[in-house]
């Protein structure tokens, strides 16, 4: 048993509670890629205020907590090519698939949605294969 697992579970309960509030009160799916993506493609124009307020809190609150706690570390790679390629793939992929870890993962699996379950299996598998290939075959990332 690792303390990080306990923090993981606690943080997970918070993430799920946030999604439950967004569903039961606002009637919406708390999917990060959809909330941003439908602002980007402007299909979410009519609910733009709700999305922007959500995003402001999503960015601002962890920022404030991290600042109060003396900083947090993301350990993101310093390789700019990898950062840009990864960002492009995440943005393109989540819009094609209509969801990411929060939408398909948290909200989809808990609804026993076949699309959410298939998407989650595929992105975890693709992530695992990519990691094995890059880290253990190429020796990088």
């Amino acid at each position: 048993m690792d303390a990080a697992w306990g923090y993981g579970f606690l943080g997970g309960l918070m993430i799920g509670s946030a999604a439950a509030i967004y569903l039961l009160v606002n009637g919406r799916i708390m999917g990060a890629s959809g909330i941003v993506g439908e602002l980007v493609d402007r299909s979410g124009r009519e609910t733009a205020a709700e999305r922007l307020v959500f995003l402001a809190a999503l960015i601002g609150v962890p920022w404030a907590i991290a600042a109060a706690a003396g900083g947090a570390e993301t350990h993101l790679t310093g390789n700019w090519a990898v950062i840009v390629a990864a960002g492009l793939l995440v943005g393109l992929g989540t819009r094609l698939a209509n969801g990411c870890t929060s939408g398909h993962g948290v909200c989809g699996i808990s609804r026993l949605s076949p699309r959410g379950i298939v998407a989650t299996v595929l992105y975890v598998l693709a992530g695992g294969v990519t990691m094995a290939f890059c880290r253990h075959w190429l020796g990088g990332i």
Partner: peptide
């Protein structure tokens, strides 16, 4: 889309 997303997720560790 899910496969492309998974690849990017692994490369940077961010979703």
């Amino acid at each position: 889309g899910s496969v492309l997303f998974g690849m990017g997720w692994a490369l940077a560790g961010l979703c």
